[in-house]
Design a protein around this nucleic acid. Structure first.
Lengths: 232, 232
DNA sequence: CGCTCTATTGATAAACCTCAAATACAGTGG
DNA sequence: CCACTGTATTTGAGGTTTATCAATAGAGCG
């Protein structure tokens, strides 16, 4: 079957399926389910019974957790080419995890059993997955440490730099963060309030470190931000 | 080779090697390096060049990260039967991760290559590892959310309950946390200061929720703590 | 019995949240 | 093209939580 050639392209470019031969990829592909998602739509809710492993082909999702007191924490952004898994793939859990599309997006999904089959037949996939998860774990552990050890302003600096690295687009006047990112989003990502984010961004705007509009942020002076984020 | 029978016992009881046949286990064992660690000794520093995957046979370690400003965050405790990996198994990283023995402990270690070999030959191990890492990820993500969304007192309540579940020993007068746990440790685990922890524990002691001595804590009324941790 | 490490407690201050009110902006339908 | 409506954002005032600093007390160890 020679159906999805560009899709197969995406797969072989992803970290997870790197090094898997073309015919194997075709087989893997045929086991997955493709879907399209509009902004705000959920890729999965925690507890989704059927599909558990997702590869983002195009677009971007935000992975967030909702606390019972109403506060939301953005765990990470999942960009195209990246995978994510609903934790319930392995276990039921307390606070719901949800992946919302941040822009129009497409993704492929596999259910748990299929994925396990794939790993059994191609252990490299398991190793790649393991590497990915360990890397993410390291990321969240670092942010956990930063949340404990740093002040809000420093955390926001790091957040912007992280997001910039992943999703920045170079423009003449700086590096534009290439999707709708509100003050509230930044607050949820850094563990503060939209008010505090607003004040800090205003302050940075005066210093010409950033320029911002409604849900759009351009980093004008990344160097200054880096220096600040590292010195506190 | 019929050397370490009790060690093999430990392996087959661990989540990672569950379902692996006895002769395979013997082979796996012979590839690992055993070590003994006194309280305070490091199982690994991040960047340890040789050994990367560790199974705790006996005792307990604390996995912590040190921020450049001197603050320490305890990422989790690793109890006997549990595995942990130095992240540098896959990538170099910024803040050092270190695993310190909290009591006299023993562990087996495998290097990266050996572990990869094992996974290639026994993909179930890869799947088990993946499940373990995803579960830990879920744990740290939950704590990340709680750190953002909850007040100190609530976080300390949850911390004590978590640690109690993992390492509690039932006594006549309550559930004793069975290793040296200082106010500073609790502070590093919950993202606060030893002073605040001390005040809160004193307060709880008045309410008869806990009893505490130097580096020893007994939970007298777990029910009250649970109720408090869930209501805020 | 002195030394060192841990814990307690009080006073003070800083960082940040909360709430309120005003303003700016984007998209929509006429 | 414009008015309208619903968000997003800004900014200020005031309060709360929690960190910081200092000083003291207690526990274990050689």
């Amino acid at each position: 079957m020679h159906s999805h050639p560009s899709l197969r392209e995406s797969l072989s470019r992803s970290d997870i399926f790197a090094g898997i031969s073309v015919d194997k990829l075709t087989g893997i592909l045929n086991l997955g389910h493709q879907g399209a998602y509009k902004t705000g739509e959920a890729l999965f809710f925690e507890g989704d019974p059927a599909l558990h492993f997702y590869l983002v082909l195009d677009g971007r999702f935000k992975l967030s957790k909702l606390h019972e007191n109403g506060k939301e924490a953005i765990v990470r952004y999942i960009n195209s080419g990246e995978m994510t898994a609903a934790i319930s793939a392995f276990k039921k859990k307390k606070y719901p995890v949800t992946a919302y599309a941040v822009e129009t997006s497409t993704a492929v999904a596999w259910d748990r059993e299929t994925m396990m089959e794939m790993i059994i037949h191609h252990p490299e996939i398991g190793i790649n997955l393991l590497g990915m998860v360990i890397e993410r774990m390291d990321d969240i552990q670092n942010r956990y440490l930063e949340l404990q050890a740093e002040r809000v302003e420093q955390r926001i600096a790091r957040a912007l730099l992280r997001i910039m690295k992943q999703s920045g687009r170079i423009m003449e006047d700086g590096i534009l963060i290439d999707f709708r990112l509100s003050r509230q989003d930044i607050a949820d990502y850094t563990g503060t309030t939209l008010f505090t984010v607003s004040r800090i961004l205003s302050n940075w705007e005066k210093k010409r470190w950033v320029r911002s509009a409604r849900e759009k942020i351009t980093i004008v002076n990344p160097h200054a931000l880096v220096a600040f984020s590292e010195s506190g």
